[in-house]
Amino acid sequence: MKRIYLHPLALRIWHWANALMVILLLITGIELRIPGVAALPVNSPALLAHRYTGWSMAISSLFWFVYSLMSGNLSRHYVIRKGDLKGILRQMKFYLLSIFRGEENPFRASPDERFNPLQKLAYGTIMCVFTPIIVVTGLFFSDMLFFRKYILLLNAMKVLDAIHVIVAYMFALYLIVHIYMATLGRKASSHIKAMIVGYEEEFDEPDMMVSYKEGPGEPDATTKMISPDKTASCQECHTEKEGANVDG
């Protein structure tokens, strides 16, 4: 069993903070959104929570982008490369078919390649397309008069609202799938644990996994190679015939 360091501390903290914020934003957002409850007063807790959490998420997304660009996280793990299309198809086949047959995931995460091609596509879309859209449209709703003047001038509030809400629903869809697929590791908790402690437990072969599960086994005698010229000294105590020793 190996332990692979997959997720840096900064990204782990960001991930869980972001998870909390997205869930909060979705809950408060749906309350603002459902018709009939939409006519909320300015100081309603749902609106205030949505606003402040939105600002926090804007800042944390900015942090993510700066960190990812500076550390090479974005260029190493998110850029889709040649051959990834095949990989996407391979992963889709695995998740839709092979997984039911109990087959192994064809992708092995490593510090150099943290995400499989399908993950790359999903996370890249979420972080580089959806998050900027939802943050920017959200900022346009805020009380920054500099923005609002032009929004009202263009009568673009409804368009922005439609974009914001549709992307928010995409976030909700993504959240469901993301949480479910996080449980598809070796154990249901292994990916989630990796996201908390940073290390993913990696087993090289299925047999090793079994032996690990049963505890450390006996040292394997067959792998002990003693060169023939050294065996002579052994035979001072261990004669060729075990029986002779016993008799002695």
């Binding site: 939409a38 006519a39 909320l40 300015v42 309603s44 709703f141 009568n155 509030m157 409804k158």
Partner: peptide, 8 residues
């Protein structure tokens, strides 16, 4: 055309 909750 401003939302009700934005009227201040």
């Amino acid at each position: 055309d401003v939302f009700a909750f934005r009227e201040g």
